[in-house]
């Protein structure tokens, strides 16, 4: 029981670490690139797009999708590693 408790704690800590990393990226591409630094990034061009505008209306959404799939992958691996996966 004690060992299991320890395992659960470790699993939760690792989960929180993943969350912190993924949510920092989430914040960066939307709030920082798409809003706070939009004017600075707009001086850079990506074809017909100004970069800040592109992040606000396109790039951030692509990154959001990728983030969730990365999270799914990481967590499935973590579940297996700790034996918490379900059949």
């Amino acid at each position: 029981m004690d060992k299991n408790q320890n395992l659960k704690k470790k699993y939760w800590k690792k989960n929180l670490k993943y969350l912190a990393i993924l949510l920092s990226i989430w914040f960066l591409v939307s709030f920082v690139f798409g809003i706070l630094l939009v004017d600075e990034l707009n001086t850079i061009r990506l074809g017909g797009f100004k970069l800040g505008f592109w992040f606000a209306q396109q790039g951030s959404i692509y990154v959001f999708v990728i983030l969730i799939f990365v999270y799914i992958k990481l967590m499935n691996k973590l579940d297996k590693e700790f034996g918490f996966n379900e059949q």
Binding site: L23, S30, G34, A56, Q57, I68, Y71
Partner: peptide, 18 residues
């Protein structure tokens, strides 16, 4: 109008992770 684009998709990251 970007507020709607980021707002209504970014929420799913919170939903999935939290």
């Amino acid at each position: 109008g970007s507020v709607y684009l980021m707002g209504w998709t970014g929420g799913y990251v919170l939903l999935a992770l939290l």
